[in-house]
Structure formats: structure tokens, C-alpha cells
Write a protein that binds this DNA or RNA. Structure first.
Lengths: 380, 380
DNA sequence: TGCGCTGGCTTAAGCGCTTAAGTACAGTGA
DNA sequence: TCACTGTACTTAAGCGCTTAAGCCAGCGCA
């Protein structure tokens, strides 16, 4: 805590005394102005201003039973981007106070340089969805709480206890933890296995997206050899891989059973795998990646291998993050309407998303994505 | 509110009854595990899990006197970007519930297209600072509240009542409103007139940044005719303009007294002004803009006027937002270490920013910016 | 046997609001 | 004149936690 002496926060009691009224009148001055005579109201508000009174949201929340806040929780997603590049990890660990003292100017650092050089860390998928969520909440005049943590009971419960509604980027198996809370507050999952767990869902039509990519590669580019890069640790990943295989089968091509493993943390299996493909002379014509981040990483590996994109290998992504526009070559991908999805989640939580589906089941909002053709497939 | 029947949130009382202990033991099970025998603790936690108990943050905050949340408030900054392009305004107004019902797929919209086409709306300066703030809070394990509203007493007080510390992008004159609250919670301003108002400050060295730009234009490019584009409605704008004039004077050039007015909302004075300059044959060799957003807007106007950047007119920005990398030509600018600034603000609020400056005055963290030379000045 | 001590639990008093119910009083109609 | 109404305000009972203080075995020790 800052050492500067802080006076106790003024309360309704202080304001009431200052204005010579009861605490109820103070409350009414803010919440039910029409119940007071103008004179009294003004007297109270003036007293409040004089004292620097800020109503305690905790007390209000307790009394009313609702906090008014909508929450967006990411399961340690920050971690994922903090994990690379290395300098950022250093910066995160290195949290002993930097010199903020005195009039000295804080110098530009190596970390700042990396952020400038590598916009790949921001904004990611989560950030754009989050922006939509915040934007909608702003329109509705509601504050937003952003939190991030593990998917342990405690972490989720803590967040759940702070908000009137919670939108979540689920991790594996978090739906189970969450279902405990969905009876007391509404919960929106951004993508997750379909299940009757009472949660609302906001997701993208993975099949349509992948189908469009595959059709483009098969029909426009006549590609006949493929590999899928990604992880099957999420429902999105599974759906995309499933449609990838379906499209191949339909084209009379026998798809592989396992994707090239693209782990974000830990050992770089993707690089190993791609090296192996080159070594054995079985590098396919196109790498269809499960996400843009995977695709960008794959392009890095290909560059290291001396392979050109798209001349030697075509690469496609999924999501449509900004970094895909900045890469060389720019990434052919499928874009999700991330902002719209974030906004939909906020509306569902606020209860302004229209009537529930007739049968009383939760919302299941599926958004159509759009194919974005750029240079990494050989177009443009 | 969602119509689905919701059961009352379970409380300590419910858990206590379920576990056969007192409510104090329930509290201890979460907050002071070492005070209970392992058997009791487990019994309580199991009961809590069974009931889906999430401790009420309101009650906790009320009892402890602190919410644990750090806040970031932007004075209707969302508005600024929501104001253009036009379709986005439409989308915002048009908030009657879209069809989220049934299994229908929500189609891709024109608005989604615009967001894809124009990354100029995101991420802006605020977003990158916000990201730093959120990142640091995540590291410290603290939730973040993002709010946005007017700078009226009520709006600010409402936000102030929800958090233990508040970082703010100040609007004109908001420091006055804020100073009422700085005696009860710490407040950080991102840039503002220097004043002894008790607020902490996190800002960039505008003079150094502008000096580097001017030196580059004067010495490397031999530019001798200039105009400044921007508004003087913020301390940042004033400092930048002041250094611009100082650099010109030092080079023996007489600077103009008033900048080209670059209003974001309202009538497009900048376009008018630039048109006038062309009409009168007095378009200078370089337009030095107060922000990247101004610079990008200026480049649009120049394009409409049939002028090429940088061949006919050199344009420079300030801030270093991502959109400046994506413009054609890419923007020469000065980059602020936005993420670092956001993180510093969070640390100051959390009290982990080291000891206060010796004399007990608030922090005044001034960050060094970095010149980023790209194509819009004729380099590269 | 009586004593103090300690670990493990409970009791109970707030924290600062909201709001249903109650009071006081001026005005109204019969 | 008095009951009646409506307006303007106050009283007081929570809301669900935290935590200081209290209680009560059960223990070691003289």
C-alpha cells in the first residue's frame, strides 16, 4: 500500500451528519432523487461533494444482492503470451520495483523494443473478444471485471463471487467446475463441447470456416497433399480437424489421423515434426493450421528450414488476428467476428439478448466466420 | 435478467449448516486454513463444493474495507473510436437484440468486414496501456475493473467506490473531480498538467520524443517548412507543440502559432485546413502530427488531395500504435512504451512500486520514448 | 488434584449500504 | 372540526462476510 496517509473513506453516515439528514436520505439522494425535495437533495449532494464521498460498491452490492459488474475470465491465457519471447518472461519475473523514484526518466528497454518489433503478442483472439465485451458493457453503462487465473475451484469461485454474470474462455474440463455456479449466476462459454450443462455458449461455426479453407485450397489451388497443424485439446481444435478430414475424404484424399502437434508451451514438437517431414521428403504442399498463432509459428519454422511460403509450402490459419496481416507473406485465414462475439456474450449476461430459446435452454450463439484470402496460399 | 430460474446464491450460513460448523469456521477454511484441523477444513471445503458456494466479494469487501480490485477508467474514450467509421455507430445504436435464439447461425455482417478492413480502431494507445495494466495485475493476482464514463462526479465516484486504486486517462479538468478521492484511494493519471494535486503520474517524455522527430526531419531530410497537426486540449498535445516550436526556433525557422486543428469528433477541420493550404499553395514539406491517429487521418486527406506521402508531403506521428505499421506508407513516429506504462501504473496502485519519493510526494514516472523511422518521412 | 496453556472452535459485533415500514405534518374535503 | 391523503423524511432490519474475543476440552506439570 502506498505509505501516504489516507483518511478513512467517508460513508453515508458522514454525509448524513454533514448535511443534517438521515442516512436514508443520503441513499435516496443518489438512488431515488425523486423521493426527496430538491432542496434536501442538493444539500446532500453538496455535502457528498465536499467530503469526497464515493458510495461503497461493496456495501451496495451486499445490500442489493448484486454487484452490477459483468466479468470476463481467462484461464491463465495471459501466461500463454507471456511465455514468448523470452525477454518478456524475464521482465515478468523481474518484478522487484524498477526505479520509479525521483524525477529520473525511465529508459526505453529491450522489452519495449520487442513489443514494437513483434506485434504477434497483441492483440490476440482473446483481446479482440474482450474488446467487444467491454464495448458492449460500456454501451450498457456497466463496469467490467477482467480476471485471469487457474481453473481451480477457488479461483473461479472468487471471480464468480464478484460479478453478476461471467463470460469465460474455458480450459479443458473447466465446464465441470463452472456448472456449480451456473445455478446462481449466468455463465457464457466461448466455445466448448456441446453439453447440457446450463451454460450459455458463444462460438464460431468451425465447420463452415474449415470447409471454406479446404474448398479454396482444393479447388482454386489444386492442392492434393496436406497436413494439419494444431492441438486437439479444445473443442474448436477438434471440430476444425474433423472438418479438415471430412473435406479431404470427400475429395478422395486419405487424411492423416493425427495432426502435427503445435504445443504453445513446452518443447517445440511442431518444429521437430516439420523437420522430420522435410528429412523424409514428405513435406506436403499445404499446412492447414488450427489457429493463426500456429500458422505464424509454422511459417517461422519453414523459414528456418529454407522453405518459401507459398512457393514451396502453402500455409493457412484460423481466427483472423491482426498479426496475420503483418506477417510476410500475409496469412490466408478464416476470420471470426470476435468483437461481435464478445458483445453477444455481454448482452446475454446482461439479459438484453432477447428472450431465451423457447424451451428454456441456454443460448447457443453460433457465428459465421469469413474466409480471408491473402498471400500465404499463393493468392494475391 | 435471464429468465431461467436461479436459486439463491449459497452463503456461509448454508455451507456452515451443511458442514455442521459455525460460519466462522467456513470463513477460516478459506482465509486461514491453518487455524482449522485438517478434518474440519476438508469437511467445509467439500460442503462448499457441493453447494457451489462462491464467497460474496461484496460482503468480503465490506467486512475488510477493501475490494482487492484495481481499476482503470477511461473517460468515454470508447466513444472516440465508436465514432468512426459510421457503420460502427449504427451497430452501436442498433442494439435491439439480434437473433440469438434457436440454432440459427448468426451471419457475418458489414460491421465485421469493416473491423477486418480497418485495424485503425484497435488497438489504440489506450488499449496497449490497458493491456500492460491488466498484465501486471494478473502477475500480482489481482482482478481488474475496466470502466468508462463521463468525468462527472457521480460517474467517477461510482468507479472510485469499487476499487482500491484507480488509474485514469484524464480528460480536461478531471483532475479537479479526482482530487476529492485521492485522499481515500491512490490515483494514477496517465499524463496531465503537472500540479500538486496528490495524484501519481505516469507519462512519456514528450519533449524528448518531439525533439528526436524534429532533429530527424531537420538534419536527415533537410526539411525547412513545417506544419503541426493536432489539438492543444491535453497536456501531451501542448508539450509536443511547445517542443515542436522550440526545435523550429532553434533551427532559425519561425513556427506558426496555432496548429492545424485535428478534432476527432465533429466537423473535419483538419481536412478544411489542409485543403486551404493546398489551395493557397502553402502546403509545407512536412506535417508533424500530435498523434498517430491524427497522422493517419492526415494521410487520408492528403491522398484525397492527390498528394503523395512522402514524395510531396512528409508525415510523422506520435505514440507508435500498431495501425502506423499497417498504413501505406508506414508511419514514422515516436513510440511510447505503453505496456510498461500500464504496468507501472498497476504497481504504483498496488503499492509495489518501491518506496515513495523521499519527500512523500506522489510518483511522477516519466518514460523515455523511442524514435521509429519508417517510410512516411522518406526513409526506408 | 489443581493449574495454566494451547489448539480448535464458536459467539457476536460490526462493515456501509438499501429499503420496507413507520412517523410527522401540511393540505383537503365533508 | 376531524378523518383522510399525500409528501418528505426517518427508523431499523437486514445483506454475507471478517475477526477480536471468548469458551472449552485435553494436556503437561507441580
Amino acid at each position: 500500500m502506498t505509505e501516504r496517509p489516507r483518511t478513512r473513506r467517508p460513508t453515508v453516515y458522514d454525509v448524513a451528519q454533514e448535511a443534517g439528514v438521515s442516512i436514508a436520505s443520503v441513499s435516496f439522494a443518489f438512488r431515488r432523487p425523486e423521493q426527496l425535495s430538491e432542496a434536501t437533495r442538493e444539500r446532500v449532494l453538496a455535502a457528498a461533494r465536499r467530503l469526497g464521498y464515493a458510495p461503497s460498491a461493496s456495501a451496495r452490492g451486499l445490500a442489493r444482492g448484486r454487484t452490477g459488474i459483468l466479468g470476463l475470465h481467462a484461464f491463465d491465457l495471459m501466461l500463454e503470451r507471456a511465455h514468448e519471447p523470452a525477454a518478456r518472461v524475464r521482465a515478468l519475473r523481474d518484478l522487484h520495483s524498477p526505479d520509479l523514484e525521483g524525477p529520473r526518466i525511465i529508459p526505453w528497454t529491450e522489452t519495449d523494443d520487442e513489443l514494437l518489433a513483434d506485434p504477434r503478442a497483441f492483440p490476440l483472439y482473446v483481446d479482440e473478444v474482450q474488446r467487444g465485451f467491454a464495448l458492449e458493457c460500456w454501451v450498457m453503462g456497466r463496469p467490467v471485471m477482467i480476471s485471469s487465473g487457474s481453473d481451480s475451484d477457488v479461483s473461479v469461485a472468487d471471480t464468480a463471487g464478484r460479478v453478476d454474470g461471467l463470460a469465460i474462455f474455458p480450459s479443458e474440463g473447466s465446464a465441470a467446475v463452472l456448472s456449480r455456479f451456473s445455478s446462481s449466476i449466468p455463465i457464457v462459454l466461448f466455445s466448448a463441447t456441446p453439453a447440457a450443462d446450463g451454460h450459455h455458449r458463444v462460438r464460431v461455426d468451425n465447420s463452415q470456416g474449415m470447409r471454406e479453407i479446404m474448398t479454396h485450397l482444393l479447388d482454386e489451388h489444386g492442392v492434393r497433399s496436406f497436413a494439419f497443424v494444431g492441438r486437439l485439446d479444445s473443442w474448436d481444435g477438434e471440430e476444425r480437424f474433423a472438418q479438415y478430414r471430412a473435406s479431404l475424404s470427400q475429395a478422395g484424399i486419405v487424411p492423416e489421423d493425427e495432426p502435427v502437434d503445435a504445443t504453445v508451451r513446452g518443447p517445440d514438437r511442431m518444429a521437430e515434426h516439420l523437420h522430420a517431414l522435410v528429412a523424409s521428403g514428405r513435406m506436403p504442399r499445404a499446412l492447414v493450421c488450427s489457429t493463426d498463432q500456429n500458422a505464424l509459428a509454422a511459417m517461422d519454422v519453414l523459414r528456418d528450414l529454407g522453405l518459401r511460403v507459398p512457393e514451396d509450402v502453402i500455409v493457412t490459419g484460423f481466427d483472423g488476428i491482426l498479426a496475420g496481416r503483418l506477417s510476410a507473406p500475409a496469412l490466408t485465414t478464416v476470420r471470426q467476428p470476435m468483437e461481435a462475439m464478445g458483445r453477444a456474450a455481454a448482452r446475454i449476461l446482461a439479459g438484453t439478448a432477447g428472450p431465451l430459446p423457447g424451451d428454456g435452454s441456454p443460448f447457443d450463439a453460433v457465428f459465421a466466420p469469413a474466409l480471408v484470402v491473402r498471400a500465404s496460399c499463393g493468392c494475391g
